[in-house]
C-alpha cells in the first residue's frame, strides 16, 4: 500500500482488528479525560489548562496510596475521586474564581498558572523519576483470537463507560445536574431562580477533576507517572473535545474512541512516534471542515 509516496506496510485483518481494539481501550481513557474537560468548558466556557496537571497529581495520589499504603489502584478510586472533587471545588471557588473577577481571559491564564505551579511542585517534591504501580494481575487477560486483551484494559473501558453513564444520569435526573446545564446556557436566568452560580461553577470544576482522578485510577496499572505526565493526555483529550464538539458528552465519548482507534492504527502503519501525527491531522481537518465538531452546536 502506498500513501503520498510513502510505502506503508501491509498487514492482515487480524492485526488491523487487534490494533483497532486496543484503540478502543485507549479511547475509553481519552474519553474520560475529555469528559472532564468538556464539562468544564460547557459550563465555565474556558479551557482548563490545569487539567493535565490535575491528572498527573491524581496519578501520584494513586501511586503513593499503593506505595505507602498498599492500596490497590482500582480501590484507590474510592479515595481519589471524592478527593479530586473536593480539590477541584476548592481550586475553583478559592483560587480560580476569586482571582479571575469573572473575566474569561483571566480564568484561562489562572488555570495555566495553576498548571505550572502544580507541575513544578511535583518536580520538586517527587523528582523527575518515573514511578510505576505494580499489580500482580497486570498481564492477566483473555485471548480474543485476534488479540490478547488484558483485564486492566477491559477495566478501563468498563470504568469509562460506567462513569460516563453515571454522569449523564446525574445531569438529567438531579436538581444539581439540571442547574449545571442551566448555568451553562443562561447564567442570569439561573441566578433568578436562586441558583448560586459560583457554587455551580465550583461543582462543575470538581466533577471535571473527579473525572481525571477516576482516569488516573484506571491508568495507573498500565502507565508510569512523572511530573509532565499530563501533557500528552490532555493535548489528545483536547483534540477529542474539539472533534466531539465543545461541551458535548456524547461527543467526548465518540471522539475518544475515534481518536484512540486512529492513534493505534497510525502507530501500526507509521510507527510508534510518527503515528501520533494522525491525531494532529484529524485536529486540523475538523477545524477546517467542521469547526463545531461532530456533536457540537453553533455558538
Amino acid at each position: 500500500m502506498e500513501l503520498l509516496g510513502f510505502q506503508l506496510p501491509t498487514y492482515g485483518w487480524s492485526t488491523i482488528l487487534g490494533s483497532a481494539i486496543s484503540g478502543v481501550f485507549l479511547g475509553a481513557i481519552y474519553a474520560l479525560v475529555a469528559l472532564g474537560l468538556t464539562l468544564i468548558y460547557g459550563v465555565l466556557h474556558i479551557i482548563n489548562f490545569a487539567h493535565g496537571a490535575l491528572l498527573m497529581l491524581a496519578m501520584y495520589a494513586v501511586y503513593f496510596l499503593w506505595h505507602l499504603g498498599g492500596v490497590d489502584p482500582y480501590l484507590a478510586m474510592l479515595i481519589v475521586v471524592p478527593g479530586g472533587f473536593v480539590f477541584g471545588y476548592c481550586l475553583q471557588r478559592g483560587v480560580i474564581g476569586k482571582t479571575s473577577h469573572g473575566r474569561d481571559e483571566i480564568i484561562l491564564l489562572v488555570t495555566l498558572g495553576v498548571a505550572i505551579v502544580i507541575e513544578n511542585a511535583a518536580l520538586f517534591l517527587f523528582s523527575a523519576d518515573e514511578r510505576n504501580v505494580q499489580v500482580p494481575y497486570d498481564l492477566d487477560g483473555i485471548d480474543l483470537g485476534v488479540t490478547y486483551v488484558v483485564w486492566t484494559d477491559l477495566a478501563a473501558l468498563a470504568g469509562s463507560l460506567l462513569i460516563t453513564l453515571a454522569l449523564w444520569l446525574f445531569m438529567v435526573r438531579t436538581d444539581t445536574g439540571k442547574a449545571i446545564r442551566a448555568v451553562a446556557k443562561e447564567r442570569q436566568g439561573a441566578r433568578l431562580v436562586g441558583i448560586n452560580v459560583d457554587h455551580i461553577f465550583a461543582i462543575s470544576f470538581g466533577i471535571g477533576t473527579a473525572c481525571v482522578a477516576a482516569a488516573a485510577s484506571l491508568l495507573a496499572p498500565t502507565y508510569a507517572v512523572y511530573p509532565q505526565f499530563g501533557y500528552l493526555f490532555v493535548l489528545i483529550a483536547f483534540t477529542v473535545v474539539v472533534l466531539g464538539g465543545m461541551g458535548s458528552f456524547v461527543g467526548a465519548l465518540v471522539g475518544g474512541f475515534v481518536i484512540g482507534i486512529t492513534e493505534q492504527l497510525g502507530r501500526l502503519y507509521l510507527g510508534e512516534s510518527l503515528g501520533l501525527i494522525t491525531i494532529s491531522a484529524i485536529f486540523i481537518l475538523i477545524l477546517l471542515f467542521r469547526p463545531t465538531g461532530l456533536f457540537g452546536q453553533k455558538a
Binding site: R181, A184, G189
Partner: peptide
C-alpha cells in the same frame, strides 16, 4: 421572584 425581560428561560432544558 423576578420574571425578567427577555425571559431568560433555559433553552437547552
Amino acid at each position: 421572584i423576578q420574571v425578567p425581560e427577555g425571559r431568560r428561560i433555559f433553552p437547552n432544558l
